[in-house]
Amino acid sequence: MSGVSVGIRSLSKSLGGRVVLRAIHLDVAAGEWLALVGPSGSGKTTLLRLIAGLDRPEGGEILFDGCDAASIPPRHRDVGMVFQDLALWPYLSVHDHLSEVGGDAAGELVERFGLTGLERMRPHELSGGEQQRLALARAVARSPRLLLLDEPFSSLDPVLRRALAGTLRELQREREITTIYVSHYFETPVLNASRVALLCQGRIEQAGTVAELRENPKSEWVSAFFADEAEVDS
């Protein structure tokens, strides 16, 4: 099954009296890999949570394949998500995590994400990298049509980050899953994205390919962000 197209129309959200998202407009094509980049507090996680249906927007709408998703509960949105804190279930083993979500596909996922031999372990017995791999494997276990990744590699070393990013990219291409990858800086998965959307203070400042953004920044903030964030995994 291929990915879903996502349309975001005038999406607004406030948290604790503070406006986090201001009338966001964004389109993500089916099977596209979009990177959502912005500084801390710019509203990236909030936007992901709204798309997943975990929070409700105050205004605007989210369209899945052109249909309003407001009435679809999270469990029926066909969305996989890697949370910033991973949200692994402390009392379930690696195998239980994957079989609860993916059923018979658990064995294949264990192999694919390099978790062989760790099946009986629980999250607190895994290393940071293994926990990340488990979170990724769980997110794709149900073959979702949309994958939301909230800074999934933030705590990994560059070598592990590249390896996992490669696995993820391979899987995304193979299954044509629409993917939204959130990061606060320009790392490899962002540079490999088909498009990048820059989020600043709850607004999409500019969206386009990395080359477009670099060559034609629409604002001083975008050019400054590129100047400051020219960091690339090496």
Partner: peptide, 24 residues
């Protein structure tokens, strides 16, 4: 987030309670 991960994974409310909430 543990409960939300269960919801996104398609688990029913009863299953989330039994597998995630109750042990914790």
């Amino acid at each position: 987030s543990h409960i939300e991960a269960g919801e996104l994974s398609g688990m029913s409310r009863a299953r989330i309670w039994r597998k995630i909430v109750l042990p914790a």
